[in-house]
Design a protein around this nucleic acid. Structure first.
Length: 111
DNA sequence: GATATGACGTCAT
DNA sequence: CATGACGCCATAT
């Protein structure tokens, strides 16, 4: 479980951020945003600072909140007041769509 | 099993 | 935008 979530969090590249819900979904646990938190609590080498709340809002408080903002800015992430510029840094996880190995296109329907 | 907790998300006021 | 309420799920006691 956490292993899956942690792996998902690690996929977040630098200069990008994601939300608890999105991570949970990408990990395969829609609605398990709280579990993402637990995964973060696990003292691992996870890029926790790249995880923010819905709308790019930093859910931390006090010093940790400042730390995350500092770390993100250090990666080139811009802020809109006290929130992350999601429109520029929201990381979209790769959809689990069956990848076509031979560059084969999917059944394209006449449009 | 029940209760309490937690870096959440969404809706209603 | 701020506050209140509910839903969600694993963990700890």
């Amino acid at each position: 479980m956490f292993q899956r979530i942690q792996a998902t969090i690690r996929k977040i590249p630098r200069g990008k951020v994601s939300t608890y819900g999105a991570i949970a979904r990408a990990a395969g646990f829609p609605g398990a945003a709280r579990q993402v938190v637990w995964a973060l609590h696990s003292s691992n080498g996870l890029p926790w600072h790249r995880v923010v709340g819905a709308g790019g809002e930093i859910k931390l408080q006090g010093e940790p909140a400042l730390e995350q903002k500092l770390r993100l800015e250090s990666e080139g992430v811009s802020f809109s007041g006290r929130r992350v510029a999601m429109k520029q840094h929201e990381f979209h996880f790769p959809s689990p769509k069956r990848a076509r190995k031979s560059g084969r296109v999917q059944n394209k329907r006449r449009g």
